[in-house]
Simulated assay, not measured.
Amino acid sequence: MTKAGPASVEFRNVSMRYGAVTAVDNVSFSIEAGKLVTLLGPSGCGKTTTLRMIAGLEIASEGQIMIGGKDVTRLSAADRDVSMVFQSYALFPHMSVIENAAYGPTVKGLGKEVARDMAMSKLELVGLKGFENRFPSELSGGQQQRVAVARALVLEPQVLLFDEPLSNLDAKLRRRVREEIRELQQDLNLTVAYVTHDQEEALAVSDRIIVMSNARIAQEGAPRDLYEQPANAFVADFIGDANLIDVTVKSVADGRAEVAIGPVSVPMPARGLGIGPAKVAVRPESLLIGHEADAMALPGTIKKCAYLGNHLDIMVSTAVGELFVIQYGARDMLEPGMPVWLSFAKSGVTLIPPV
């Protein structure tokens, strides 16, 4: 059985309506073959519905869905070369690990021995050799997750889909399993669409991230682009922590803006904005605390300081509101009421539209 290999996925003006409710609203994007793209957003933003439309578990109300250049918009799930790993893993409790993994080829009528060999090779791939005769109830959450991945991989689908795959695991295991998924995706050159509401997970595993909000795409791009150059307040606040400060753009020349942040003036890329009100998104680690009066820095007073092992979480009261600051490395605690001056780092300080 020769396989076609990984395939691209493309959405062209796709909408999904349930009666009067629009779950996905005129969405267009593409996933390159062999890449891992994450659909990221809060509950109810449309990301899981989008994933289910790739799988054929939901049929789009409007628009076109292409897999490997072929129009699959009206095809059923069974007629698409796609596999999905569900949030609940959806393993059959009465079947052993090997029977679960061999389910796909068995149903396709490939014969018991062939199905078993195919399943065994995938179980070995996910590190479960020796576990084949156990039942799901005898496995840890991380092991059950791997069985679900092996079962999804066994037919070598053109596209592999993950729906919140780590949400049932504890924090430490989550990190390990997300690394395993990423390694597997890269080693096998898989096309993966991955859904999560966890921004750290998205930043860690993705080639590209599509941020969704209210059934639409808020922004898409490489993880670093989204973190360092958010398009708007929603993306800035959703991907990592951000201080959102109301500011005034005083002048713009050659793509650079002079921005009034309270009493201080800070130069930064204009990003297409003109003179007038705007917002600046400032990452907590991009606020630098000084202890001597500085005309180029924003004066403030320490409100709170918490020790979190490898960093301090600090709240500073300023003329533009309370700002959240993170200081990494071993540092002395800062006492409430202490005067400080905040300056702005070169990166992690981004001009965004006022609304």
Rank of each mutant, 00 (worst) to 15 (best):
E228I: 00
F238H: 07
G240V: 03
A202G: 11
S206W: 12
I239M: 05
N232C: 11
F234I: 09
V247W: 04
D237S: 15
A233D: 10
I239Y: 04
G240F: 09
E220Q: 15
D225G: 01
D225N: 11
R208S: 05
I209P: 12
A204W: 06
D225C: 01
A202T: 07
L203V: 14
A202F: 09
A218S: 13
A236E: 09
V211D: 03
D246G: 03
V235Q: 05
S206I: 03
N232I: 05
A218T: 08
S206T: 02
F234A: 09
I210Y: 02
L244R: 08
A215K: 11
R224E: 13
E201P: 13
M212T: 05
E201I: 11
S213G: 00
I239V: 14
A215G: 10
I217H: 14
E200D: 13
L226K: 03
L244H: 09
A233G: 05
A233P: 00
A222M: 07
N214E: 14
A222C: 00
D225M: 05
A231H: 08
G240W: 10
E201G: 13
R216I: 01
P230I: 06
P223Q: 05
R224H: 12
E200M: 12
N214S: 15
E220M: 14
N214M: 10
A233I: 00
I210S: 06
A202C: 08
F238V: 02
A242E: 02
Q219Y: 13
I217T: 13
L244N: 10
I217K: 13
V247T: 02
Y227F: 14
R224Y: 12
L244T: 06
D225V: 07
A233Q: 13
I245V: 15
L226E: 02
D237I: 00
I239L: 09
G221M: 09
M212P: 10
A215W: 11
I217V: 15
Y227V: 01
D225Y: 01
A218F: 12
A236L: 02
V247A: 04
E220I: 00
E200C: 01
D246I: 00
F238W: 02
F238S: 01
V205S: 09
I210G: 04
I209F: 12
V235P: 06
P223Y: 08
I209K: 10
V211R: 05
N243Q: 03
A222H: 12
V235E: 06
A233Y: 00
D207V: 07
I209T: 08
N232G: 13
A231S: 15
D246K: 14
D207C: 08
R216W: 01
A236M: 03
A231M: 04
I245Q: 10
S206K: 09
D241L: 04
E228D: 12
S213K: 15
D241T: 12
A231F: 02
L244G: 10
V205L: 09
A218R: 11
Q229R: 15
M212A: 03
A215M: 10
S206M: 04
M212R: 07
